[in-house]
């Protein structure tokens, strides 16, 4: 009985984030060591691989198979794809400016990957790549390096002018330049931690409440809470994809837009 009671309280909210080999079974002889999580090589097929592949398939289904008919009067799937296309295209155009539109496929790739990783991660038993800092930092660094290199390529040394706030009094400019440079390099940190943190926290909270559901007394409250948080997490999944994307557009504007300082 005490074991059952212990099991009831055994909430392990972080287990869902463990990266493990997909074609692998635990060795029952060593219950305290999970062989599937040990010595993972970069080429191993893991749950990360599988859920990213699912995201790729869903995106392909939505954007390619959905638009297969090229219908002027769209089918449902096609119009979902068109709505996303129009939404992100307008965002890039409005935020990054007219010159940013040619980087629309890049922005769309980020948005769709993050959106579907987030949403698929909400399926029970699934894995959420975007809850991992390794993934989000990589994404943020891709954006950071892309924007920086693009800015230097397009504007040359003039790109550094964005750190020199010409509208401020001359005495303040060096100070502001230091602040601007620090804020520029902090961008990928906030950009990535915001996404991973939101996803990880939401999923962990849901797991904790789900763990409480095994206690009969509070299970109705716990299940209600899980349902409510699930709704909230759906919102977070979409909003965080949106936030990441719009920040990408804002950064892109620095590289392609007119100097605004």
């Amino acid at each position: 009985m005490t074991d059952v009671a212990e099991g009831a309280f055994a909430i392990h909210p972080m287990d869902q984030f463990v990266v493990k080999r997909w074609f692998c079974h635990d060795d029952p002889a060593t219950p305290l060591i999970n062989e599937c999580t040990q010595n993972i090589h970069w080429y191993d097929i893991t749950n990360v691989t599988v859920w990213m592949a699912v995201a790729v398939l869903v995106i392909t289904l939505l954007m390619v198979v959905g638009s297969r008919g090229r219908a002027v009067i769209p089918t449902r799937l096609q119009s979902v794809g068109e709505v996303i296309y129009g939404f992100i295209h307008k965002m890039v155009e409005d935020v990054a400016g007219h010159d940013g539109v040619k980087y629309f496929p890049f922005v769309m790739t980020l948005f769709l990957f993050i959106l579907f990783s987030n949403l698929l991660g909400l399926l029970p038993k699934s894995f959420t790549p975007t809850s991992h800092v390794a993934v989000t930092v990589t994404l943020a660094l891709i954006v950071f390096l892309f924007v920086t290199l693009l800015g230097l390529a397009r504007k040359g040394i003039g790109f550094l002018g964005m750190f020199w706030v010409s509208s401020a009094p001359l005495a303040l400019r060096p100070v502001l330049a230091v602040i601007e440079i620090i804020s520029y390099f902090v961008r990928p940190v906030s950009h990535s931690i915001r996404l991973a943190g939101n996803l990880m926290a939401g999923h962990a909270v849901m797991k904790v409440f789900a763990g409480f559901a095994s206690m009969a007394v509070i299970s109705p409250v716990a299940i209600g809470a899980v349902s409510a948080i699930y709704g909230l997490e759906l919102l977070v999944a979409v909003v965080q994809a949106y936030v990441f994307t719009i920040l990408t557009c804002v950064y892109l504007k620095d590289a392609v837009g007119d100097a605004h300082h």
């Binding site: 990266v19 999580t37 993972i40 090589h41 970069w42 080429y43 191993d44 893991t46 990360v48 691989t49 990213m52 592949a53 995201a55 790729v56 995106i59 392909t60 954007m63 390619v64 638009s67 090229r70 794809g81 068109e82 296309y85 629309f104 496929p105 890049f106 769309m108 790739t109 980020l110 769709l112 990957f113 790549p129 991992h132 390794a134 993934v135 990589t138 994404l139 891709i142």
Partner: peptide, 28 residues
């Protein structure tokens, strides 16, 4: 686990990008 995640992320992004860039976005 980072190398594994970053490698597969790169693969996924490249595939999504190519699918969108070459097929889906021009079509839509």
């Amino acid at each position: 686990t980072w190398a594994n995640q970053i490698f597969w992320l790169a693969v996924a992004l490249v595939v999504i990008f190519l699918v969108l860039w070459r097929v889906a976005l021009p079509r839509i």
